[in-house]
Every structure is written in structure tokens, then in C-alpha cells.
């Protein structure tokens, strides 16, 4: 079964499955213990190292299991964990399990441009106003019409007493907002990178007094970024390309890492994201097999009632027109051949002397004949006329 097409072959919206996009990805931690080595942590000894790679380890059970930051003895106390996802994903949730006393303030950010710029997705803090200048999140989600970065008052407590950062995009979106119909929500869930900033440790009191601080380090494991490889409804899976980059396996005449544009010949209508109602597949231009390239013309598209805007380029086989559907000057349609036949257009072959021009009727092939001349190519004198010696008036009335 093809998830991107109906049984009859009609296109339908398709999306890749929900995955942990962070699994196996490199995590960049701004602080990791073990350099220089201490009794508890030594980055050069696998048995005592706590690298950031442990956060997204694929398979197996590692020992130790938790990443640990360096001891935080003075401000700033921020430690960030950054996960480049390798391509755009549509987020569903982000979670991180803390292995020791969790921080009291955590900021969650995302980038849509591979780490060049960042925007907040949410905050977790018992002091939302103090740490992030925000009010605690309302119980029933954001008040505004669109999703927004809310400050949640606390982390989740697990049955075993541990703490979990659990962020769901649903919690920061107003109820009823639909991904298919809301470009704002589509933008909100789109991310290429995730950053978790552990802002304030729980065990430290007044952070302005570095003398009073107790050495502390952050420790966490199982960083998960739940999401779908973003393909705009035009692919059911993502694959690694020859250079090891994750890309959508695009269908519906689309291409690009996210199926974000139409393939070169598929520009009969503008690119659109697929929805549950309509696949919005890119359509191939109609060129009767005589052109390999086409371009989109918005004016023609509007005039056609938003049906077709493709204009064929470089029509071959002596054809011409927007769809290579008629013959170019000096050629006429052979009625015995199909429009897509390579020899559908025949040369007019107008007689150099008997014809008054080189262009024949595109349908019948009839050349324009001089007075007294007849025949499809104007190569004979009409009855009652005879050939003269003048190439200007090749046929004269028979005396």
C-alpha cells in the first residue's frame, strides 16, 4: 500500500511516522564534567565519564547513564543542551529526565534555521516572573488566538520520585487549532534544532552571592524530541541521502529536503502543503511530450480559474504554443498522427516559385498560391493555365 496515493492512484496527504528526532543525534552541552578529572567524573575514563552523548544514546545500556555538567560554583549558572535535528521536524513533544535534583528554572527554545536564530517554546519555573518575566501559564492554555511560549510552574514528578521536563506543543496551543488549516501552528511546531537551557539550580539560594554557593551540577538523561520529519504532507518517510543528510522521500511531484517545492516540470499550479482534504499534488505541465521544461504563469493560472498556469518552454519537434499543441510557422498538423507524435507537425514545403509565402494553413497544410497556381504546395498550374517563363507569375492563362 502506498500511503501517499489512493488505490486508484489519486494522490492523498501522507506524513512520516512519529519518531524521537534526537535519537542518536549529537548533543552540544555548554558544560560537561571531567575536564579536569575529579573523583566523580573523568572524561577520559569511560567508566567515570558523563558525556552529553549519553542523552541521546541509540540502543544499549550505557553505564554511567547520565550526562553531568561541570560543578557550578559561580554565576553564570546557565548550562545549555543543544540538539541539531539535521533537518526540519514538526514537533509533538520534548522531554528530559533529570538524574539528580532538577533545576528550578528551565527554558526550552527552538531554531528553524539550523541554529542561527532561536525563539522560546516554553519555560518551566517556580518563579516565572523573576526568571523569565512571564506570568504562569493559564490552566486552559494560551489566551491568544495562536500558540505562545508559556511558563509552566513546575516539572513533572515521576512515580520513582525523579523529575521530568515534559513539554507538549498541544499545551501551548489554543484548543481547536488545526495543523492543516493553521499556518501559525505549522510554523510553531517547525524546528531544526532544540535547545534546553538549565537556568537556575534548585539547591542554590541567592545566586548573586557566589561565596555562599554550594557546588552543584546538573545531571540528566533520555532527551527525547518527539516529532515527525517535516515533508508538508508529500512524503511518508525520510531517508538518508548520499551525503548522509536526512531528506523526505518526496511524492506528488514535489522535491527538496521538506518537499517544499514542485519538481521542475511539475509547475502547472503553485506548490501547496497537502491537507487531509486535498493532496495539492504538483501537476506536470501539459506539453504533449514535446517539451522538457515549463514555467508557471500566475496570470494564466488566474484566468483559467486556478486550474492551469504552466507554460511549456522550448517546444521541440516543430511544435509551438503554451502546451506545444500547435505547429510552428512553416509546419502543419498531420491529421494521421496523434498530437504527441514526434512527427505530428509536417513541413509546409511550399513551392519556391508557385507559392506566395512559406507559411501554410496549420490544419490543412495548404500553401498560399500565386494566381493561376494550384496544389497543396502550389506546385502546378491550375486548369486553363500554363507555365510561363516568369518566376513572378509562373502560370498564365492559356491563350
Amino acid at each position: 500500500a502506498d500511503p501517499c496515493h489512493e488505490e486508484g492512484g489519486a494522490p492523498r496527504a501522507c506524513v512520516p511516522g512519529l519518531v524521537n528526532a534526537a535519537l542518536g543525534r549529537e548533543v552540544l552541552a555548554s558544560s560537561t564534567c571531567g575536564q579536569p578529572p575529579t573523583q566523580a567524573c573523568d572524561s577520559s575514563d569511560p567508566r567515570r565519564a558523563h558525556p552529553a552523548a549519553l542523552l541521546t544514546l541509540a540502543g544499549g545500556t550505557a553505564s554511567p547513564v547520565c550526562w553531568r555538567s561541570d560543578l557550578l560554583t559561580q554565576a553564570p549558572l546557565n548550562v545549555s543542551l543543544t540538539v541539531p535535528l539535521g533537518k526540519t521536524f514538526e514537533l509533538v513533544f520534548v522531554s528530559l529526565r533529570f538524574c539528580s535534583t532538577p533545576p528550578t528554572s528551565v527554558a526550552l527554545l527552538k531554531s528553524q534555521d539550523h541554529g542561527r536564530s532561536w525563539v522560546p517554546l516554553g519555560f518551566f519555573s517556580s518563579c516565572c516572573g523573576l526568571d523569565y518575566g512571564r506570568l504562569p501559564a493559564p490552566a486552559n492554555g494560551p489566551a491568544g488566538p495562536g500558540p505562545e511560549a508559556l511558563c509552566f510552574p513546575e516539572l513533572q514528578t515521576q512515580p520513582d520520585g525523579g523529575s521530568l521536563l515534559a513539554f507538549s506543543v498541544q499545551d501551548s496551543s489554543p484548543p481547536g487549532l488545526d495543523l492543516d488549516s493553521s499556518p501559525v501552528l505549522q510554523d510553531w511546531v517547525t524546528a531544526t534544532d532544540i535547545r534546553i537551557v538549565l537556568t537556575r539550580p534548585a539547591m542554590l539560594g541567592d545566586t548573586s552571592d557566589s561565596e555562599a554557593m554550594v557546588p552543584y551540577s546538573y545531571s540528566a538523561a533520555e532527551l527525547q524530541v518527539g516529532g515527525r520529519c517535516k515533508c508538508n504532507g508529500h512524503a511518508s518517510r525520510c531517508l538518508l541521502d548520499t551525503q548522509g543528510h536526512l531528506i523526505c522521500d518526496c511524492r506528488h511531484g514535489t522535491e527538496g529536503p521538506d518537499c517544499g517545492r514542485c519538481k521542475p516540470f511539475y509547475c502547472d499550479r503553485p506548490w501547496q502543503r497537502a491537507t487531509a482534504r486535498e493532496a495539492h499534488a504538483c501537476l506536470a505541465c501539459s506539453c504533449n511530450g514535446h517539451a522538457r521544461r515549463c514555467r508557471f504563469n500566475m496570470e494564466l493560472y488566474r484566468l483559467s480559474g486556478r486550474r492551469s498556469g504552466g507554460v511549456c518552454l522550448n517546444c521541440r519537434h516543430n511544435t509551438a504554443g503554451r502546451h506545444c499543441h500547435y505547429c510552428r510557422e512553416g509546419f502543419y498538423r498531420d491529421p494521421g498522427r496523434a498530437p504527441n507524435d514526434r512527427r505530428a507537425c509536417r513541413a509546409c514545403d511550399c513551392h519556391p516559385v508557385g507559392a506566395a509565402g512559406k507559411t501554410c494553413n496549420q490544419t490543412t497544410g495548404q500553401c498560399p498560391c500565386k494566381d493561376g497556381v494550384t496544389g497543396l504546395t502550389c506546385n502546378r498550374c491550375a486548369p486553363g493555365f500554363q507555365q510561363s517563363r516568369s518566376p513572378v507569375a509562373p502560370c498564365v492563362k492559356t491563350p
Binding site: 519556391p352 508557385g354 491550375a382 517563363r389
Partner: peptide, 23 residues
């Protein structure tokens, strides 16, 4: 009546050299 095709050899190009088709 089927008339013969125009015989190019019969035409006198003396005054119309510029119109003469290439052979």
C-alpha cells in the same frame, strides 16, 4: 485534369536573380 508540376528549368531568372531559390 492533372497538370504537370512546375518545371524550374523553364523559368528565366534574368531579371529576378535575387528571387532565385538556392539549388
Amino acid at each position: 485534369e492533372v497538370m504537370p508540376t512546375l518545371d524550374m528549368a523553364l523559368f528565366d531568372w534574368t531579371d529576378y536573380e535575387d528571387l532565385k531559390p538556392e539549388a
